[in-house]
């Protein structure tokens, strides 16, 4: 075969090329995560890793399984739509272990956060100028936070 005479360098090159291609696929198989491409051009396992993040807000359904009395008071008043942790803060730890004391929220900060009068707030939303409204008395003197109507009574 005249064609293949003196063609040794070509075969050596072809062999080198084959080895290179093979090692590319072997290295690639090791480096690309197994779940890459499972749903698209990304690592599919990332989805369950993100979903494994710990929960901090237990959710009002969880609160209401134990605190049925408070839920009843709250749901009969103007704060029915306000979830427990909107004021009490994230309490998943307390829900997991009720011996953890969640502490009482500070009404001096809490009430005005929503109810301080401001022209920027929607007109129908109940707002007061705290100084004029109560002369410095704490809100819960007259309003019970779980059912704020005066008729429902405040802390005595």
């Amino acid at each position: 075969m005249r064609v293949f005479r003196d063609a040794g360098h070509l075969f050596r090159l072809a062999g080198l090329f084959a080895v290179g291609t093979l090692s590319f696929f072997i290295i690639r198989a090791f480096l690309v995560p197994r779940s890459f491409g499972e749903y698209g051009h990304y690592r599919g396992a990332a989805i369950s890793e993100i979903a494994a993040h710990p929960i901090r807000f237990a959710g009002h359904q969880t609160c209401e399984t134990c605190h049925t009395d408070v839920a009843q008071t709250k749901n009969s008043g103007k704060h029915a739509q306000v979830n427990c942790e909107a004021c009490h803060g994230p309490l998943a730890k307390h829900a997991d272990d009720p011996s953890i004391d969640p502490g009482k929220p500070d009404t001096a900060v809490l009430c005005v956060r929503c109810h301080a009068a401001s022209a920027a707030k929607p007109k129908g939303f109940p707002q007061v100028d705290a100084d004029q409204h109560s002369n410095g008395l704490p809100c819960q003197t007259c309003h019970q936070p779980h059912n704020p109507a005066i008729a429902a009574g405040g802390a005595k």
Partner: peptide
């Protein structure tokens, strides 16, 4: 080993 963590939900 490469298959990763099981379904969280």
């Amino acid at each position: 080993l490469l298959a990763g963590t099981p379904e969280a939900s």
